[in-house]
Amino acid sequence: MPDEDTPDRSRDAVVQVRGLHYRVDAREIFAGVDLEARRGRITAVMGPSGTGKTTLLRLITGQVAPDQGSVAVFGQEVAGLDTRGLYGLRRRMGMLFQNGALLTDLSVFENVAFPVREHARLPEPVLRQLVLTKLHAVGLRGAADLMPTQLSGGMARRVALARAIVMDPELLIYDEPFVGLDPVSMGVIVRLIRELNDALGITSIVVSHDVRELATISHHSYLLSGGKVVAEGTPAELAASPIAEVRQFMSGEADGPVPFHYPAGDYHAALLGKGQGRRP
């Protein structure tokens, strides 16, 4: 278990979210969310599916703008940046997509080389060394010449991880890195996230609902539900939380404060064809 406060690490926040409000059409996704990710730490954002975890990442990376409140990354207000400023910001961060999002018409090697070719003019031998080093770090140097369609889900995600770190980002964002992986691939990804954080001192934000995996790597966790942060703290603090909603999520019970059923009308009436069976 990583300790909560390591004195030699500076405590400044790389990502700072204050009073965040965001709605899509009439649906309120966030109603006043505050959270921060400190330098050199792994911050976990947990929550049931559909609580807008991925939307939070889209707000942090400037793909969408908040309705209210502020999202600051490296001390810069994301919503206030123009395209050039935003791209400058994004060059300092890496993002791992849920499905890898590898460019399907490029080989594994070229996928990892892609951001380097775009942003830096490196001689081919240096580029080759850099890419192979990163592929080696995720254990896939031997797969350099494969095409993305030839990779398994776990391998694709590792290649995507190599691509995300090839420009040596200061902030690394993981969107559901554990979804749909077999136990071995999962273990590999967990180890990689930990190693990248330890060895390179990268600030990490991991969005996921895999409580057990997160508990082994995160320094600080936030639990989102109903558009708000319902709990935060170290994994141990969250596990010992007295709040019923938090306990339900952490132990994975089907019913509780978070209802099993999506809001619906009367069951019997719906079966007998009297009602719509939908929201009352």
Binding site: Y87, R90, R91, A101, T104, P115
Partner: peptide, 16 residues
């Protein structure tokens, strides 16, 4: 490419 996040991934790598 849009459906498989490839375009978004490019934007995230600061490539238009």
């Amino acid at each position: 490419m849009r459906a498989t996040d490839q375009l978004t991934a490019m934007e995230m790598m600061a490539v238009d």
